[in-house]
Design a protein around this nucleic acid. Structure first.
Lengths: 335, 335
DNA sequence: CCGTGAGCCGCACACGTGTGCAGGGCAGGC
DNA sequence: GCCTGCCCTGCACACGTGTGCGGCTCACGG
């Protein structure tokens, strides 16, 4: 335990050269002769050398890490996005340090401060909510910022998003094509920017079919099953005659399904339910959930690639928007 | 963008003191007069100073980060554990860098190497599988290692685990008390150490009731819904008359439920199902899943606390084992 | 007036790595 | 034999921070 790690100076001493030569040899500099490189590399292996990212980062001004702030890693949607980020990061010799903000402003500040001290090379944010005050602190870190499923007003902040308007349209058009005219929307948490856009898209599509979602049929959830369940119960309690329910995301749909089951209603015979995200378990629900799929892994992948481009100062990085897709399963039916 | 961050030397220049004084002032050293401290602190705030964890880590030999390797962050069980880790880490001024191993040996090596270069102060591992070769590389990092839900043969590696034997017993005893005598077990992936132990505990409890789980009634899954669905279908296809199914974890139970539904069997009227983990959605399934709960958040919390104790060289850290608990919902019924 | 001690601060070095510049060795051409 | 040029290596500094030790200033007592 008292053993300290071996440094390039140790290798230099053993090899009888200067530490500069070792540094150059290990980074494959053309200034070093082939045989010296080979000798030093072998020595480094034998001595169990592991370069210090701290020392290196201090001089190169690159830490080799990117910050990753999410509302909660518990959300399965976020989990899949994070996986996309982390895997492409690792393949590019980058690591990600993870921060749960829990949507608490105080924690958000704390995490940003920590990420700044760690000198992360970029920050990727997957919290649906990005307050203006929060943004100010983010750009205070002085590193590129990539927002996922969010757009910021200012410059210097880039984003990769889903075309949520189109996603909402997909859902609305599909429901309309099945003959639904009374559809309800169970929204996400109030601060979720995407929620309103999805609703807007859905309403636009329904309008083409000559109908709409009246205000009394949009209920507010929280993006989790309990919120969906509560909203669905509220809907049932009010006795409003709906034939279909569009959910902000799959997790609220999970809650909606349970609430409907408990109320003795069958899906899709009595009421159709459509979700959003296409989370892994969506296909294994009862009934299998029809939903608007987001390319979650690609979302993370593209965000990480964008972050890398920004770090390397590549010009002309442009915000990317990915397309949603309707996944037809068994939770919707013609009325 | 070209702006570099302000250092203590910059502050020192402005304040007309040496950088040592600034360093000591900011770390609240008693060697500095109160008014000088106040002046320097104010200056640091005004100049937007943010200490560099790289520079500090280089001299203190502490990076302030811990490595976190998981099989996949997509697993909801792991997600909740990670949340426990990350939150208590942040409250102790620590950050976590996340690595998905995907149970691929090649990736595992890559991540360990990266964590070592980043000079993490400790490593927490939540992959159910820990090969001996992998362990060798892990201890090569020269930092404390904490295993979650795993035990290692050697020393220098600590662990916090659930009493899976007891967990299995809870499930078995409960099923036996409901009169079940023909119960099947759907196991986890072959490398999951916990799977066998849970089965063992269940069999022990059933034995007290004078029955057992014969080999033909233990099927192998993969810890995910698709695996559970496949195993359940296999069970149905074979036509074996079981009255209850014990699942390695809740996610396989999800798959089992879908398979049973599709086969026209009702739960719990026709067959009882019991899971393990008490994942968030378990309560929102249809029917709500009876399961053996693991204190997931506490698992992560205790692991992080143990890691901190090991980092600080505290003596007498002892492996901790947490108790499982039966959560009775509606997926099991007296036969 | 001098010695003593306390309080506060700077000098210098360390941590591990990267890199511009100079210098040494050697071969080749005149 | 000397100059030129090339190839390889070492010197020295930089990055941002922490810290042991010595030194300065000032007040106070003898």
């Amino acid at each position: 335990m008292g053993r300290v790690s071996v440094t390039i100076k140790d290798i230099a001493r053993v090899a009888g050269v200067s530490h500069s030569t070792v540094s150059r040899a290990l980074s494959d500099s053309p200034l070093i002769s082939t045989e010296t490189k080979a000798r030093i590399r072998r020595l480094a292996d034998e001595m169990g050398y592991s370069p210090s990212a701290l020392g290196r980062g201090l001089v190169t001004r690159r830490s080799g890490t990117i910050g990753l702030v999410v509302t909660t890693i518990t959300d399965p949607f976020i989990g899949e996005v994070v996986q996309g980020i982390e895997e492409t990061a690792l393949s590019c010799q980058y690591n990600t340090i993870l921060c749960n903000s829990n949507s608490e402003p105080e924690r958000e500040l704390k995490t940003v401060r920590a990420l700044r001290e760690k000198r992360v090379d970029a920050i990727i944010v997957t919290s649906s909510r990005v307050g203006s005050l929060y943004l100010a602190h983010l750009r205070g870190a002085g590193v590129p910022i990539v927002l996922i499923n969010n757009q910021a007003a200012g410059d210097y902040i880039h984003s990769v998003i889903i075309d949520d308007l189109h996603g909402g349209e997909l859902a609305g058009r599909y429901l309309a094509s099945l003959g639904h005219r009374r559809v309800a929307y169970i929204a996400g948490p109030i601060w979720a920017r995407a929620s309103g856009i999805r609703l807007q898209g859905c309403r636009r599509a329904l309008a083409e079919a000559g109908t709409d979602i009246p205000p009394e049929l949009v209920l507010v959830g929280n993006g989790r099953p309990d919120g969906g369940m509560q909203a669905a119960n509220e809907l049932l309690h009010r006795g409003l005659p709906v034939t279909a329910i569009f959910c902000y995301n799959d997790m609220t749909a999970v809650g909606v399904l349970t609430a409907l089951h408990r109320a003795g209603l069958r899906v899709p015979e009595d009421v159709s339910v459509i979700g959003y995200d296409d989370v892994a378990i969506a296909a294994h629900l009862f009934p299998p959930l029809t939903t608007v799929a987001q390319p979650k892994y690609a979302l993370g992948q593209r965000a990480m690639e964008m972050a890398l481009a920004l770090i390397n100062g590549e010009p002309g990085v442009r915000d990317v928007v990915l397309p949603p897709a309707l996944i037809e399963r068994e939770s919707c039916q013609r009325v």
